[in-house]
């Protein structure tokens, strides 16, 4: 199934606590990738230049593929016969577990870049850890996805630099986007109840360590972009526990429209 070291030999069978928390955690990863992919796909055909239209679609496709892998694993963990599509298309907003950041609307190109950059910083460093983690299935997904995420973080970092150190207008726009979106950064490394339980079991990495890596990368990029790193921002949270901003409901209404209108059909 995977090239990763077999965890079963190293660890004993998962405790009931791990079993109970792994499903919501994998679902959270899946929802996060799907919602961000969905947002990026809204750009398709409307990008600032053809070349970047293709770049954004590529990132969306990577994330969509990653989401599917997680949903399939989540369905397997749950073991109730639900499919990837059941999980994506037939859960309501309060059941969705993505952090607030990724459901935020695209805004202008600067908004999309800043949202992407904040997420890429976390995503890339998380995957680096997960790929050598004890859960073989997650490690296999992370092993594949981390290569994609390495490209994403390169792309969004370079754009932050271009926009920050570009024209007056691009700087004004990217600063505005940072002011709007930074308050959603903290949730990424604030563990939910499920994540805490899994951290205790060693399945989810220490978020303080990831935060330090993220901070270092942000500092490097913002310095080159000649942008100040925001300080003392009040951090919003709740998405990972199903308490979302108003934006997610509209997104899901669109995403789930056909499955909800014609229940139980094949497409």
């Amino acid at each position: 199934m995977t090239d990763s070291p077999m965890p079963a030999q190293a660890t004993t069978a998962p405790t009931p606590e791990v079993q109970a928390n792994l499903f919501p955690f994998v679902l959270q990863l899946a929802d996060t990738s799907l919602i961000l992919a969905h947002r990026l796909s809204e750009w398709c055909g409307h990008g600032p230049i053809l070349e970047q239209d293709l770049a954004m679609a590529n990132i969306a496709l990577d994330l969509l593929g990653e989401a599917r892998s997680y949903y399939q694993y989540a369905a397997e963990l749950e073991g109730k016969g639900r499919t990837e599509d059941d999980l994506a298309y037939l859960r309501s907003a309060v059941e969705y577990r993505n952090p607030l950041l990724v459901e935020q609307p695209n805004g202008d190109f600067a908004g999309t870049i800043v949202r992407q950059f904040i997420y890429d910083c976390f995503h890339y460093h998380l995957l680096l850890q997960l790929k050598s983690g004890p859960d073989a299935h997650l490690a296999a997904i992370a092993e594949k996805s981390v290569k994609e995420a390495a490209y994403h973080i390169k792309w969004s970092s370079e754009w932050v630099i271009r926009l920050g150190d570009g024209t007056e207008e691009s700087r004004r726009r990217v600063e505005k986007a940072i002011n709007t979106l930074w308050r959603y950064a903290g949730e990424l490394t604030t563990p939910s109840a499920a994540e805490k339980a899994l951290q205790a079991a060693g399945l989810v990495p220490d978020y303080a360590a990831i935060q330090a890596q993220v901070d270092a990368h942000v500092a490097r990029v913002f310095e080159e972009a000649t942008l100040p790193v925001p300080q003392g921002v009040f951090m919003q949270k709740g998405g990972k526990d199903g308490r979302h901003s108003e934006h997610l409901g509209y997104l899901l209404a669109e995403l789930q429209y056909l499955q909800r209108t014609y229940p139980g059909l094949q497409w």
């Binding site: 070349e51 970047q52 293709l54 770049a55 590529n58 390169k154 792309w155």
Partner: peptide, 20 residues
């Protein structure tokens, strides 16, 4: 061919356009 603002972007755009 393609358009890009600098060489680094040109390489990345080439990757996104010509190696899908």
């Amino acid at each position: 061919s393609l358009h890009a603002a600098d060489a680094e972007m040109a390489i990345q755009n080439a990757r996104d356009v010509y190696t899908r």
